[in-house]
Amino acid sequence: MKMTGEIQTTRGRPPRLSRELIVAAALQRNLESLTMRELADYLGVSHGALYRWVESRDELLHLISETLVERVLSVGVLDGTDWRKRIYRLAWAMYNEFRQVRGFATLMVRPHRHNAQAFTRFRDAIIDAFEHSGVNSSMAEQSWYIFIISVMGWISMEESGPDLGGTGARFDVFLGTLIKGLPASEPEEYV
């Protein structure tokens, strides 16, 4: 019997697959470069067996997104609390969950088809928090864009190197500054 991370494989009959097992295996790999062939080999199954459960790499990324968004929302959403505390908790939950999965943030900031169901739930939680700050729905949505691009961009840059090029940059300082500048408001005209 061979142990590969948390995934157990044996010689002979391939292990029973499930979407949960496939996602768990993928979460242990670098998603930025992960291929379906590599994942099948890691699981100790044929490519055909893997494709019977997950039709494509895009579908795999959708399943991973659902898993990670669910984890973030289970930790980060606190209904009835101050909107800043909600945003702060969601951002830290994103940071902690997404940083554990190599390549996830980098993939998410690149143009691609997002998992609409997972990210809509996440987007709605963030917009709801901003609406509780007193801004209208349009500015709450603009705040969502600023928030998600900023936080995902930060996490993606950290994936490039552990210390953003040795600058000593800190997520806590970044996040505090970001939240102080939110929610969005109509821009002033500068002459």
Rank of each mutant, 00 (worst) to 15 (best):
residue 3 M to K: 15
residue 15 P to D: 09
residue 17 L to E: 09
residue 21 L to D: 13
residue 21 L to Q: 13
residue 22 I to H: 08
residue 22 I to E: 02
residue 24 A to Y: 06
residue 26 A to R: 03
residue 28 Q to R: 09
residue 28 Q to F: 02
residue 33 S to G: 11
residue 33 S to E: 10
residue 33 S to W: 07
residue 35 T to F: 04
residue 35 T to C: 03
residue 37 R to Y: 01
residue 38 E to G: 04
residue 39 L to D: 00
residue 39 L to C: 07
residue 41 D to I: 00
residue 41 D to Q: 11
residue 42 Y to T: 06
residue 45 V to N: 04
residue 47 H to L: 04
residue 49 A to Q: 07
residue 52 R to H: 11
residue 55 E to Y: 07
residue 57 R to Q: 02
residue 58 D to F: 01
residue 62 H to F: 10
residue 62 H to P: 01
residue 63 L to I: 03
residue 64 I to L: 05
residue 64 I to S: 01
residue 67 T to K: 12
residue 67 T to I: 00
residue 70 E to K: 15
residue 71 R to I: 05
residue 72 V to R: 00
residue 72 V to M: 03
residue 73 L to N: 10
residue 74 S to L: 03
residue 84 R to W: 00
residue 84 R to I: 05
residue 85 K to S: 03
residue 85 K to T: 08
residue 86 R to S: 13
residue 86 R to D: 00
residue 89 R to S: 15
residue 91 A to G: 07
residue 91 A to D: 00
residue 93 A to K: 11
residue 93 A to I: 07
residue 94 M to E: 09
residue 94 M to P: 03
residue 96 N to Q: 07
residue 96 N to D: 11
residue 97 E to H: 07
residue 100 Q to E: 13
residue 104 F to S: 01
residue 109 V to W: 14
residue 110 R to M: 12
residue 111 P to R: 05
residue 117 Q to H: 13
residue 117 Q to W: 15
residue 117 Q to F: 13
residue 121 R to Q: 15
residue 122 F to N: 05
residue 123 R to T: 09
residue 125 A to C: 10
residue 126 I to F: 04
residue 135 V to Q: 03
residue 136 N to H: 07
residue 138 S to Y: 13
residue 138 S to M: 13
residue 140 A to H: 00
residue 141 E to P: 05
residue 143 S to Q: 01
residue 147 F to Y: 11
residue 148 I to D: 02
residue 152 M to D: 14
residue 155 I to N: 09
residue 155 I to D: 06
residue 156 S to D: 14
residue 158 E to L: 10
residue 159 E to Q: 15
residue 159 E to W: 03
residue 161 G to F: 06
residue 164 L to E: 01
residue 170 R to T: 05
residue 175 L to T: 13
residue 181 G to V: 10
residue 189 E to C: 10
